[in-house]
Nucleic acid binder design. Structure first.
Lengths: 287, 287
DNA sequence: GTGCGTTTAGCTACTATTTGTCCAGGAAAT
DNA sequence: ATTTCCTGGACAAATAGTAGCTAAACGCAC
């Protein structure tokens, strides 16, 4: 599937709606969610074209833009479109071990909400809940695994689509001994949406080989995570001994990493919500 | 027939793009690769004319030059449809650490070949090659990881689509301590294609909780894998101590598992190529 | 109809990026 | 000798971005 994305002039020529207007529609009604390129330019999909044409036709029939947009929103959200409700629905499906429902809710969420919102407001809280429920013994490890696997599949699907133009290349990996990679996967998706080319290396990667790889693919930065204490220790040891490549900036983060640790190792720290991390990395890359 | 070559003025007159612009396109986007005379002058072919005209037309449709060029690059990367060639192309991309090409080849393969054939004839051999190259030191762990991650994403995307449960429910998981899950993921896809409802639990799962889960979702069978020696040991220990549920048939397999081990533990063995395993499980489920 | 508030497209101002054109100085072709 | 072409850099024009303002169009109460 060579997914080709239109810029604002192209979609404007095809739909007959001026660029200014398209931007206003996006700002006011959020009907269009074009992905952004490296420099922040909008890139529209075929679906976006269809949405614009649909609204244009409604306007021709005498509807107002706002109403048409709301109709469109409503028509493609059969049931839920509220992040909170979707989150609760997902948690409910997990609690009931209803694997089909889990997929349904995830499909639904990705269909009606912007990707970053799905990650921040639906997937993240649900995973958090899953972790807590597992710790308190309300959920078995198998249930926790099935949730992870499901989420991973959905996120993986988002990672395969490639965007043509890029801010830079970001290499993402879990530190040595670290197997908690879902958070990193979510970051990968978020960065991709923000216009990065992401090379995702997954769990348990020695730092030296990660640096070498990042250098080889000409990456702008290398993000390593550690979610638990033992792997922070190993990551720190690696950072102390690894030979740095100046061109590749190293960023660390993850549940068990603190700004102090990063400072001590002479690398940058990123943390907070996904959106915050993306913003931090965006600024950081410019420096 | 002596191929007729145009100098830069000629191609400029035919396409309406000024020589200066053509040179900049070449410099900036590399779309044109005219041959050079002894003294370094550009000589364009008919293909080059077509490429310039194609880009010119895209620009008229509102695209930006840079992106149109990239689209052109993408579209004329030769389309393969032979499993062997695709396999070799994938291995080549892995060897060259060309992450974009890897995605291209995988996209291509899944587009033109049946899923099972992609897994058996393209992905499997390429992963095998990757493993061998890693062991012989020709490939770093990072390179091995990026291949895994890429393949995992593509396979995960296939696992998201749900199909009816005609043959029964199969629960798949790696045994405790086992993190090599790509083979299992490929089996998951193959079983799904064969008409099973697959619940994929991924790496490192204790057997007792897997059995409990399989029972809870009314599974027909539970497949556990072990790819390396230590995890076979843990799997055997678990099998000896876990409480069986009659309804759920347990099957084990994986690189480090032998029929003898399965027999000793009182469970069924499955092994061979993906197709063979699927056939074995199909027969097995009927009993 | 008239008046009033809301909705809407278009416009301006300003910044950043992308892209086409031009120029200088030297080499080759005519 | 004049013209064409090369490279590389400089620069201006075009395209996009954001934010905020304006005025026409519209809905609705009177």
């Amino acid at each position: 599937m060579p997914e080709l994305l239109l810029n604002i002039t192209a979609i404007s020529l095809r739909t007959g709606i001026k660029p200014d207007t398209l931007r206003k529609w996006e700002q006011r009604y959020g009907v269009l969610r074009p992905v952004r390129t490296a420099s922040g330019q909008r890139r529209y999909s075929e679906t976006d074209v269809q949405r614009v044409e649909w609204i244009r036709d409604r306007i021709a029939e005498g509807w107002r833009v706002g109403e048409a947009s709301r109709m469109l929103e409503r028509s493609d959200s059969t049931a839920l479109d509220d992040p909170t409700e979707l989150r609760d629905a997902l948690i409910g499906a997990i609690r009931d071990v209803d694997v089909d429902a889990m997929s349904d809710v995830l499909d639904q969420a990705f269909a009606v909400l912007p990707t970053t919102q799905v990650l921040n407001c639906v997937v993240s809280p649900a995973l958090q809940w899953t972790g807590d429920a597992w710790q308190s013994g309300d959920l078995s490890i198998a249930q926790e695994h099935v949730v992870s696997a499901k989420v991973r599949s959905h996120l993986g699907a988002l990672l395969v689509t490639r965007s043509g133009n890029v801010k830079g290349i970001a290499v993402l990996a879990c530190g040595p001994g670290e197997y908690h990679d879902i958070g990193l996967l979510m970051l990968a998706i978020s960065l991709r949406v923000d216009g990065w080319q992401v090379e995702y290396l997954g769990a348990n990667l020695p730092l030296d080989t990660a640096v070498e790889f990042a250098n080889r693919v000409n990456a702008t930065m290398l993000c390593m995570t550690a979610a638990v204490e033992p792997s922070v220790k190993r990551l720190r040891e690696s950072l102390a001994s690894v030979e740095r490549v100046d061109r590749v900036k190293i960023v660390i983060g993850g549940a068990a990493v603190t700004p102090a640790i990063a400072k001590e190792c002479g690398v940058t720290y990123a943390g907070g919500t996904l959106d915050e991390i993306v913003a931090q990395l965006r600024r950081f890359a410019r420096t």
